[in-house]
Write a protein that binds this DNA or RNA. Structure first.
Length: 216
DNA sequence: CACTTAGCACCCTAGACACA
DNA sequence: TGTGTCTAGGGTGCTAAGTG
């Protein structure tokens, strides 16, 4: 830091750099982050068991999770472990959800949590302390090699095939949307005809939800 | 209804660490 | 020793719930 008197600013004020559609309703008690699908989370879990916790370079190299950065994966690991500090599991072939399950049961006034993750409050542990914890966690949680060595991770796909699949998905959704729009339009016409024939009846459509959201 | 508060997710960066 | 990587911890903006 060059300016020791200035408080570090992690993010500039004003609008955020990235607009996130997933800035959404509360996701309490949900292990998934909005940016992670259940499948992706499961792939990461397997990759962590196979390559070892914190071995981001190998996971990225395997291309089993294209587009994910080590920062994103680390955040998801923290959610799975249920604790912010990951150092004590570094390099271990463990199931992070086992630790997460254990951490979720830890309660008490001294337990500080952030995003449902236990935050380290007792000062930064020394190198020796971390090594000691790694050894202990290895004895307690490490899975045998014959278990994780046969884990199958998704192979990197041809980006053109991925693009084509996404286009197909988009076409399907567009078709579904126009079908729903047609149904709505037909119902409206039907109702108008009915009201023309029986003008005395009230228009029950007033109680219907607005469909404006469907318009692009 | 407007405002406040609580709690969440994601972003960001300083500093520690590993390695060439 | 320089450089790149990793990660702990803090900041910001969001929504839901609470309150007057």
């Amino acid at each position: 830091m060059s300016e020791d008197s200035i408080k570090p600013q992690s993010m500039s004020s004003g609008p955020r750099n990235v607009l996130r559609p997933n800035d959404s309703a509360s996701l309490w008690n949900c292990s998934l982050s909005p940016g992670w699908s259940r499948e992706e989370s499961e792939i990461l879990r397997k990759a962590l068991i196979k390559f070892g916790i914190g071995n981001w370079a190998k996971i990225i190299e395997s291309q089993c999770l294209p587009g994910k950065t080590n920062a994103q994966m680390n955040l998801q690991l923290q959610r799975m472990l249920g604790q912010q500090s990951t150092a004590e599991f570094n390099g271990l072939h463990i199931d992070p959800l086992v630790i997460g399950e254990k951490n979720s049961k830890i309660q008490g006034p001294t337990v500080k949590r952030k995003n449902n993750c236990i935050v380290n409050t007792g000062g930064k542990p020394s190198r020796e302390e971390i090594k000691r914890r790694i050894q202990k966690n290895k004895e307690l949680y490490e899975l045998p090699e014959e278990k994780w060595s046969e884990f199958e991770l998704p192979k990197p796909e041809d980006p053109f095939l991925v693009l084509e699949a996404k286009r197909g998905e988009l076409r399907h959704l567009q078709h579904e949307l126009s079908s729903v729009e047609e149904q709505i339009s037909a119902l409206r016409k039907q109702r108008q005809l009915h009201l023309q024939q029986f003008p005395g009846e009230t228009d029950s459509s007033e109680n219907e939800p607005e469909c404006a959201d469907y318009k692009e």
